[in-house]
Write a protein that binds this DNA or RNA. Structure first.
Lengths: 232, 232
DNA sequence: CTAGCATTTCTTGCATGCAACAAATCAAAG
DNA sequence: CTTTGATTTGTTGCATGCAAGAAATGCTAG
């Protein structure tokens, strides 16, 4: 898998250090697993720089909640606790609800057409039982919606949250739950309808219900995944 | 002014580097003003350490949006744009609305008594026309409410936001608007009532309306302050 | 075989030196 | 006086060396 960039939530085009981006990608894509050691010296050799810039990037990632730096022991990829996942889905619901409401309040919404096309392609993906494509489209739908809210601070907080939710293993597995795919597409359509109707309250409400239900599935999926990963 | 800690939003007792906290305090309390240069060498001498830990702290503050590091030029205290202030108040409304709803959902809420006492003291402050005390109590009310939501991730995002909103000059000035003090106390009481009634929807709604109205005042106040600061 | 202890190894924390570059300063020409 | 240019000053970016400490390892005694 060479190009993992298609899934990355960027929205930060203003000169972020390349090292930071690459390290973050390694974590959110699962190229390095929770518990793995990210030693400064080793990374410095891999990226052909000194320890200093590596160290700065790792400290940033610590602040983003993606790694844990234990003094004089090592820097490790972090795995969110069950409680944190629950908390983050509460936040996700709030963020995306806010975004939907803001979208419904905006005058012209160029992103609406993009969302409509997304739903159309999602229906195709469901019909073809292509869960991988569908997973990608779901991410794109939510990402487009938040970006369309036209609130950069919201986008920053949202990106922070989603990176920590480790998109892949937690969100992806959610969708394979039987029956949720069809419902999910219908809900996406309902969200678009509410936004088109310029009804902020309805848009927010529908969006939040949608996130809440998918969140429950996701938390359950994460719980189940834990049973497999760590029987303790 | 020795102890500025009474106003600091902590909620991060887990060993944050002291340097980072002190530098952050200097910014949010206004000890250093927007536009001021924070040179690594000078700070290193002030705090009697080398440039390295200073540098790490400044990079963190850059990520928190409090400073801007311009390569090979200098690190400067940042001032949020008008647009960012508007965006952040939209987020604040969402955060505190979420918190109020979560509080109303909780079983026992130990913080309720604390909030009631806060309102009582706020009434006293209004009666005595002590706007400084009142300003402090308002901050405490909102801070206590968010903390009571029992969602650490929410608290983290909230702290990030509030630090960037530069509590003092933006929020403080808001309250001196004539007539808002009495209204504000009534609204705080209404929020407590909704939470006590275990009515999450009402709690969130009242909270959001409260934040929204205070936000409008705050944005106007910031705009006015800009007229004074920079006529350009 | 086990338990305890010394040692070795590996990691981050911090200090410091130098390079790269931007911006301010100052001098000289018109 | 203004403008243009060279020079000086100041700043961050990065590499590297050493210290402090934690944890793994191996050795020794029982």
């Amino acid at each position: 898998m060479q190009e993992t960039s298609t899934l990355g939530t960027k929205s930060k085009p203003d000169s972020e250090p390349p090292l930071l981006s690459r390290l973050r990608q390694m974590i959110v894509t699962g190229a390095v697993q929770p518990g793995d050691l990210l030693a400064e010296t080793a990374l410095a050799q891999d990226f052909d720089v000194s320890r200093t810039p590596i160290r700065e990037a790792l400290k940033q990632l610590e602040r983003e909640g993606l790694v844990e730096v234990r003094a004089r022991v090592g820097t490790f990829v972090r795995k969110p606790t069950q409680r944190e996942i629950h908390e983050m889905f509460e936040l996700k619901e709030s963020f995306e609800g806010l975004a939907a409401g803001l979208l419904a309040r905006r005058g012209p919404v160029p992103e609406l057409q993009q969302l409509r096309e997304n739903v159309a392609r999602s229906q195709e993906a469901v019909k073809n039982d292509d869960s991988e494509l569908y997973s990608h489209l779901v991410h794109e739908f939510h990402s487009t919606l938040v970006a369309g809210a036209d609130n950069r601070k919201l986008s920053e907080h949202y990106d922070l949250l989603m990176n920590q939710l480790a998109y892949h293993r937690i969100v992806s597995q959610t969708l394979s739950m039987p029956g949720r795919l069809q419902n999910s597409v219908k809900e996406h359509q309902a969200i678009i309808d509410a936004i088109s109707s310029k009804d902020p309250l309805a848009a927010e409400l529908v969006m939040r219900r949608h996130v809440a239900s998918s969140g429950q599935s996701a938390v359950l999926a994460a719980l189940h995944a834990d049973d497999i990963d760590q029987p303790g």
